[in-house]
């Protein structure tokens, strides 16, 4: 754990140096100020306009729980909640989120206070390498909220009736989160555990 932390810090330092070198040759029109509320804390950032929300979280706020997988919206490792809705943090610019309320895996829970979804992933061995797990957990929590709010999915049979939680509904709604270790069966069990506890 401590080695991992050290590695993350040294990577972050290198990126910071790179940014400063780059900033010197960059015009101010290509940078903007943005204020983000992340896990309840407000942060004022001055960023290259190109900075995605994902890079702002990881590189500028050192919230490295949110992972960069494909960086093109295909894998879901970067899933975070913005104003209560799950999105891919890699496919949105930080400057587009002035004043937005962002929740990352660090805001979901930590070692001392696991969220029920995190506990369920542990209980069911719902990961192997763990890289996709923060995105899976953020997405899974949103999936249960979306079903509860009655938002339809591709497998919802009746568009005008209350939606029942089923394996098919969970699988379909989790299709934007890939797991290369193939922990899908246990991820499904973990989500079902939380769904049952909630009901």
């Amino acid at each position: 754990m401590s080695m991992l932390k050290t590695l993350e810090h040294s990577l972050s330092d290198r990126n910071e140096q790179g940014r400063h070198l780059f900033m010197n040759s960059q015009s101010s029109a290509e940078r903007s100020n943005v204020s983000l509320v992340v896990n309840g804390e407000r942060h004022q950032l001055e960023l290259d306009n190109r900075t995605t929300l994902l890079d702002a979280l990881r590189e500028h706020l050192t919230l490295t729980g949110t992972k960069k997988g494909c960086d093109h919206g295909q894998c879901g490792a970067c899933t975070v909640s913005v104003n209560g809705e799950r999105i891919n943090a890699c496919l949105t610019l930080a400057v587009m989120h002035e004043g937005d309320d962002i929740s990352t895996i660090e805001g979901v829970g930590g070692v001392e206070h696991l969220d029920p979804m995190q506990q369920a992933f542990v209980d069911h061995d719902a990961f192997q390498c763990g890289y996709c797990t923060p995105g899976q957990i953020c997405s899974a929590k949103a999936v249960l909220d979306e079903i509860q709010a009655g938002l339809p999915s591709h497998v919802t049979k009746d568009l005008n009736a209350p939606i029942e939680i089923s394996d098919a509904e969970i699988r379909e709604r989790m299709s934007g989160n890939l797991c290369r270790c193939g922990a899908y069966a246990n991820i499904l069990k973990a989500i079902n555990q939380v769904a049952e506890a909630r009901s």
């Binding site: 919206g73 809705e85 999105i87 997405s139 979306e146 339809p152 299709s175 934007g176």
Partner: peptide, 21 residues
Amino acid sequence: KDYAVLSRALVSGASGQLRNK
């Protein structure tokens, strides 16, 4: 209720995260 073909088409596209954005 009235334009179900549209609702069905939308939920068959992309992923939950992308449809939110």
